[in-house]
Amino acid sequence: MILTTIDPAQPFQPQYSKAIDDLVTFLRSGLGANLHSVYIFGSVAKKTATPHRSNLDVIVVTQQSFAQNRTALINSIRWRFQSSHAHITELSFKTALVSDIASLDSIFSWGFLLRHCAVCVYGENLSECFGDYEPSWEIAKHWNMDVEDWLAVYRHRIVRAKNDDEHLKAQQIIAKKLLRASYSLVIPRTKGWHDDPQICGQEFLRYYPMMQLEIERLSILLSNRVVAKRSVIGLLDSYGDWLVKQFKKTEFRIG
Rank of each mutant, 00 (worst) to 15 (best):
Y122A: 00
I101M: 07
A96S: 14
V24G: 11
L114E: 01
H142L: 00
K47G: 02
E124H: 14
H156F: 08
Q246K: 15
V119F: 02
A45K: 04
N163R: 07
H116T: 03
Q198H: 12
P209E: 15
R157A: 06
F204R: 03
H167S: 04
T50P: 03
F252Y: 15
K94L: 13
R253N: 14
V244M: 06
Q172Y: 08
L168T: 06
P135E: 04
G255V: 14
D195N: 11
Y183H: 10
H87A: 12
V61L: 06
L235Y: 04
D146W: 03
M210Q: 08
S37Q: 08
C200L: 10
I215N: 02
D100S: 11
Q171T: 03
V153M: 06
G255L: 15
Q171G: 11
R70V: 01
I40K: 01
T190C: 14
D57T: 02
K169S: 06
L178E: 01
D22Y: 09
W150Q: 11
Q246G: 03
W137L: 03
S184P: 05
L56S: 03
I77W: 04
N69V: 09
G30V: 08
C117Q: 08
L97E: 07
A102R: 11
Q15A: 13
V232I: 13
G131L: 02
M145T: 00
R206D: 07
V58W: 04
V38T: 13
V38G: 05
R155S: 12
L179K: 07
Q13P: 00
R157G: 03
